[in-house]
Amino acid sequence: MGLWTPAKKKRIARSRIVGTRRVVEAIAAAEVKPEVLVCASAIGFYGDRGEEDLTERKTVGKGFLAETVQAWETEAYRTSDTRVVCLRTAVVLGRKGGALPVMALPFRFGFGAKLGDGKQWMSWIHLEDVARLALFAVENLDIRGPLNAAAPWPVRNADFTRLLAKQLHRPAFLRVPAFLLRAALGDFSEEILDSKRVLPSLACEHGFGFQFPEVEGALKDLLG
């Protein structure tokens, strides 16, 4: 969160890239190699893609996040001794910590608002489904490479705003213009305004069943 200064961008990239490099080096040095490395990754890989359906087969997008995630995953794939799965995680919704408490706070005080025009796609996933999908990746030997950790029904920001307000029994008639978000948050605003319609194609092909496929059910579970 907050402004992405050049120094902060450098810290973000280094923590992901160098951290993963050290893990891969440890695997290379280990006498007994692990059978699988499930590496954290992010849907920032895809960049701002509008209405495009983003499956694991899509190429990398543009921008700081896309470049960082691509370099991050590249480090994971350097291991030749271990099956690698890069879990490209969407916005994780959980009861404590993460995105949801931060997003819900202004709504609780009656200041809920859609961001920009509200038409941008928001990909999300319930915390329980992230944990189950990571275990699924470990247990299914046919899964390797990128794996989208996103619920099968992404929503537009305007719809998420409406459903969150409904669950909290608060109004949400406001709108924060995109230019204000860009002025206040700089490059971090792309996290909020970019449109990513990410689909869990590989998970569904391998028979993974989401406990929370739709955001309304996830919000009821987490905030009810």
Rank of each mutant, 00 (worst) to 15 (best):
L115H: 01
V18R: 13
P154R: 00
A13Y: 07
R197M: 09
L202G: 02
I125M: 01
R175S: 13
F107D: 05
R22G: 00
S15F: 07
A71H: 08
R57W: 06
A71Q: 15
P177A: 08
A66K: 09
L180N: 05
V102R: 14
K119F: 02
G47E: 08
R14P: 13
S41A: 15
R78M: 09
L37N: 03
L174D: 01
K9Q: 15
R156L: 02
A104I: 02
V92A: 09
E73F: 04
W72E: 04
D159H: 05
L163C: 00
V176N: 06
L133N: 00
H169F: 08
F179L: 06
R21P: 01
G98N: 10
R14Y: 13
V130A: 07
V85S: 08
V36K: 10
K10E: 15
E214Y: 11
A26D: 10
C204W: 04
L222A: 13
V102C: 03
F208M: 05
A149T: 00
R83S: 11
G61H: 06
G112I: 04
L180T: 10
R88Q: 12
V69P: 00
L54V: 13
R108V: 06
K58I: 11
T89E: 09
A165F: 06
V198C: 06
G50V: 08
G118Q: 02
T161I: 01
V91P: 00
E25I: 03
L185D: 05
P200I: 04
V23R: 04
V60Y: 00
T89G: 09
K166I: 01
F210W: 06
K119M: 02
C204M: 12
A90D: 05
R21L: 09
T74M: 11
F173L: 14
R88E: 05
M122Y: 13
M1F: 11
A131V: 11
A178P: 10
I17C: 09
K196Y: 03
K33H: 05
G116F: 01
G118E: 02
L180R: 08
A76E: 11
P200A: 09
D81T: 14
G110V: 12
S15E: 14
Q70A: 15
Q211M: 08
L100V: 12
V85C: 10
C86Y: 08
G110R: 11
A40P: 00
